[in-house]
Every structure is written in structure tokens, then in C-alpha cells.
């Protein structure tokens, strides 16, 4: 486990690091949203299926009831960031579920399930 700290803390660490190495960079409340970074890595791969595809939009539409903070916070469902599960395992879990989690194989297209799995794997080990 590399990190288990809040986003605010991460931003603070980044700021202090930049200062420490003497870079003359002005940081003005630059919130580093790790979910945006993860989504930015994933979205281009799936625009072949849907123009302007946003995996965070899909996540919010189908997953947010149980997985808070785009997967960064444990709630009714577990925190997803920092998972040690394989992409294949995650795809299986999304597709078939495991009570009380519903299976989404009849609701989502295979590429959408894969996109969600890629996004979850791209999330760093950060907790809200």
C-alpha cells in the first residue's frame, strides 16, 4: 500500500514537495482530483464506442448509490480505490454481482463494464 491518505493531504504533500525542491511554482488551491486523473487515462480508450465518453458519468449513473465519492469512499459498498483485485475479477463482479451487489451484465454493454473496471484499477490508493 503506497498511500492511504486524504486528497487534501495528498495535495498538501505535493505542494510541500514542490517547495522543498525549490521550484518557483505558484500553487493556488490546485485541488488534484485523482478521479479526474484516472478517468482521463481511461476515457480516450472508449471514445470509439461513444463520442465524448465519460467513465465518471457512467459511474455516477449506475454505481453511486453504493460506492461514494466515485469509488474513493466506503459506504454501503466498499471503497474501490487501491483494490488488489485483477481487472478480470472486477469485470466478473460488475457483470454478475455478489449479493447485495446487483449484476450489471444485462444493463451495461461489455465495453462499458470493461471501462468501469479500467477506471477502478486506475484509481490510486486514496481514501476520502
Amino acid at each position: 500500500m503506497l498511500f492511504n491518505v486524504s486528497i487534501t493531504r495528498l495535495t498538501h504533500i505535493a505542494f510541500m514537495t514542490l517547495c522543498a525542491i525549490g521550484l518557483n511554482i505558484s500553487v493556488t488551491h490546485a485541488e488534484e482530483d485523482v478521479t479526474d486523473i484516472a478517468a482521463g487515462q481511461i476515457n480516450p480508450k472508449y471514445t470509439q464506442y461513444k463520442e465524448n465518453f465519460s467513465v465518471k458519468r457512467l459511474f455516477a449513473s449506475r454505481c453511486s448509490w453504493c460506492h461514494q465519492g466515485y469509488g474513493l469512499k466506503e459506504a454501503d459498498g466498499p471503497r474501490l480505490s487501491g483494490t488488489d483485485k485483477s481487472k478480470e475479477y472486477i469485470i466478473e463482479q460488475i457483470a454478475y454481482g455478489k449479493s447485495p451487489m446487483p449484476g450489471f451484465r444485462k444493463q451495461l454493454k461489455p465495453w462499458q463494464i470493461e471501462a468501469l473496471a479500467d477506471y477502478i484499477k486506475a484509481l490510486p490508493d486514496v481514501e476520502l
Binding site: 455516477a60 449513473s61 449506475r62 454505481c63 453511486s64 461514494q68 465519492g69 466515485y70 469512499k73
Partner: peptide, 9 residues
């Protein structure tokens, strides 16, 4: 299908 329009904490 689940049909939400948000993510929250």
C-alpha cells in the same frame, strides 16, 4: 436500470 445523476460523499 439504476439511474442516478450524481456522485456524493
Amino acid at each position: 436500470q439504476a439511474y442516478f445523476g450524481a456522485s456524493w460523499t
